[in-house]
């Protein structure tokens, strides 16, 4: 809004989208379908509490505790819940483990399904049409955009998320990390490593 040239300047303006969302909230509140306090609590959770640091803890535990890793492989939903992380959306989780031969990459070609409970909300590129369309067709080219070049011999397996099933990539544990604690290991696990567009950091780079 150009304040100096607006003859009809008003003190308060709501842009069309802000007004629309207020209208929706008014209607849904009047019908008893949403509670403004609950809306605020959800916003606060996603703005301040949920994020990739949670997924990083899951990965660090999987690296440190073979029994947990095995559980995570068999039943990621239960293994993750055991850490006190609630998938409040009730979606099922599957952990896909990178190996020396196979690198995993997650996309949602349909829309933007993402493991919110362990990674927070997705980055903009994850929601963008070029990523959603190219990850399946040309995963190697997409990874190159992230400056991730894998050996030709490494298979890339692409997992297409759905509303009901969301994937968490368990990256390979970096070399030279045997002496690190779970908390130190968690610092090596980036969001991109858990989507598969990156790998875990080397200890000296963290």
């Amino acid at each position: 809004m150009a304040h100096d040239h607006d003859d009809h300047h008003h003190d308060n303006e709501l842009d069309p989208m802000a007004a629309r969302v207020r209208a929706l909230e008014t209607i849904l509140t009047q019908k008893g379908l949403v509670d403004p306090a609950a809306i605020d609590a959800i916003v606060e959770t996603y703005e301040t509490k949920v994020g990739p640091h949670i997924g990083a803890k899951v990965v660090a535990k999987a690296w440190s505790d073979p029994q947990f890793a095995d559980w995570l492989k068999r039943d990621a939903t239960a293994a993750i819940a055991s850490l006190g992380i609630s998938g409040r959306q009730g979606e099922h989780m599957q952990a896909v483990f990178n190996t020396a031969d196979t690198h995993n990459l997650v996309v949602c070609t349909l829309c933007s399904c993402y493991p919110w409970s362990v990674l927070g909300l997705p980055p903009v590129w994850y929601k963008s049409p070029p990523y959603r369309s190219r990850a399946v067709i040309d995963p190697r080219g997409v990874l190159a955009e992230f400056d991730l070049v894998l050996p030709e011999t490494t298979n890339i397996r692409v997992w297409d998320s759905t509303a009901e099933l969301r994937y968490l990539v368990i990256p390979l544990r970096p070399d030279g990390t045997d002496a690190l604690s779970e908390a130190q290991l968690a610092k090596l696990v980036t969001r991109d490593a858990m989507i598969g567009t990156g790998i875990a950091l080397a200890p000296e780079a963290a």
Binding site: V21, L33, Y46
Partner: peptide, 10 residues
């Protein structure tokens, strides 16, 4: 944020 939260709430 509000639009996101309304969908979660619904």
């Amino acid at each position: 944020a509000d639009a996101f939260a309304m969908v979660v709430a619904l």
